[in-house]
Every structure is written in structure tokens, then in C-alpha cells.
Deep mutational scan, measured.
Amino acid sequence: MKVMIRKTATGHSAYVAKKDLEELIVEMENPALWGGKVTLANGWQLELPAMAADTPLPITVEARKL
């Protein structure tokens, strides 16, 4: 699914347009965010693609819901 990742004042957030859902990312498998699992505030887990740590945000990526 397409997910937009952006930086907020409190960390990172994910927006899933198909579900009209925006949630804070509360847990990251990798400190650089990319190439691992993230957990959203509502409990969803997404697998993000591997990208460079300095990838500019906001960005829309293809993520997989676990």
C-alpha cells in the first residue's frame, strides 16, 4: 500500500490515503527508519523499503502491512 512518511514535531508519522488514516510511528526496528518494521500508534505494523538514511521527507513509499 502507498504510505506517506513525514517528520513531525514529535517524531515521524505515516499517512495511508486509501484508509484516510494518519498515525504517529511509535516504534522502529531500525533507527534510520528504512528497511524494517515500524509500529503505528493504532497498532498496525508496516514493513518499509530499504532507502538511504538521509532520504528527504515527506516521501510516499510502497509499504507492506504485516
Score class of each variant (00 low, 15 high):
1 M>W: 14
2 K>D: 10
2 K>V: 14
3 V>Y: 00
3 V>G: 00
4 M>T: 15
5 I>E: 01
5 I>F: 04
5 I>W: 03
6 R>G: 06
6 R>V: 10
8 T>P: 02
8 T>M: 07
8 T>S: 10
8 T>Y: 08
9 A>L: 12
9 A>N: 10
10 T>K: 13
10 T>S: 13
10 T>Q: 14
10 T>D: 13
11 G>A: 05
12 H>V: 09
12 H>M: 11
12 H>K: 02
12 H>Q: 04
12 H>E: 02
13 S>M: 13
13 S>W: 14
13 S>H: 09
13 S>L: 11
14 A>N: 01
14 A>E: 01
14 A>Y: 11
14 A>G: 07
15 Y>P: 02
16 V>C: 14
16 V>M: 13
17 A>T: 11
17 A>S: 09
19 K>V: 15
19 K>G: 14
20 D>V: 07
20 D>R: 11
20 D>A: 11
20 D>N: 11
21 L>V: 13
21 L>R: 11
21 L>C: 14
21 L>E: 06
22 E>R: 07
23 E>V: 15
23 E>G: 05
26 V>R: 05
27 E>N: 09
28 M>I: 09
28 M>D: 00
29 E>W: 06
29 E>G: 05
29 E>F: 05
29 E>T: 09
30 N>F: 13
30 N>C: 10
31 P>C: 08
31 P>N: 10
32 A>G: 14
32 A>W: 15
33 L>I: 08
33 L>E: 02
33 L>V: 07
33 L>P: 03
33 L>R: 03
34 W>K: 02
34 W>R: 02
34 W>D: 00
35 G>P: 04
35 G>K: 02
35 G>H: 01
37 K>Y: 11
37 K>M: 12
38 V>I: 14
38 V>W: 03
38 V>S: 04
38 V>T: 01
38 V>D: 01
39 T>P: 02
39 T>G: 01
39 T>S: 06
41 A>F: 05
41 A>C: 06
41 A>T: 07
42 N>H: 02
42 N>W: 04
42 N>K: 00
43 G>Q: 06
43 G>A: 01
44 W>R: 00
44 W>F: 07
44 W>V: 05
45 Q>L: 13
46 L>G: 00
46 L>A: 00
46 L>Q: 00
47 E>I: 14
47 E>L: 15
47 E>F: 13
47 E>G: 06
47 E>H: 09
48 L>M: 08
48 L>A: 03
48 L>H: 01
49 P>D: 02
49 P>F: 07
49 P>Y: 06
50 A>C: 10
50 A>E: 13
50 A>D: 12
50 A>I: 13
50 A>W: 15
51 M>V: 06
51 M>G: 03
51 M>S: 04
52 A>Q: 09
52 A>Y: 06
52 A>H: 10
52 A>F: 06
53 A>H: 12
53 A>E: 14
54 D>E: 10
54 D>W: 07
54 D>L: 05
54 D>R: 04
55 T>G: 02
55 T>I: 07
55 T>Y: 04
55 T>Q: 07
56 P>Q: 11
56 P>E: 12
57 L>R: 01
57 L>F: 13
58 P>T: 05
59 I>P: 00
59 I>D: 02
59 I>C: 09
59 I>T: 07
60 T>M: 12
60 T>L: 11
61 V>M: 03
61 V>H: 02
64 R>D: 05
64 R>F: 13
64 R>P: 04
64 R>K: 14
64 R>H: 11
66 L>A: 09
66 L>E: 04
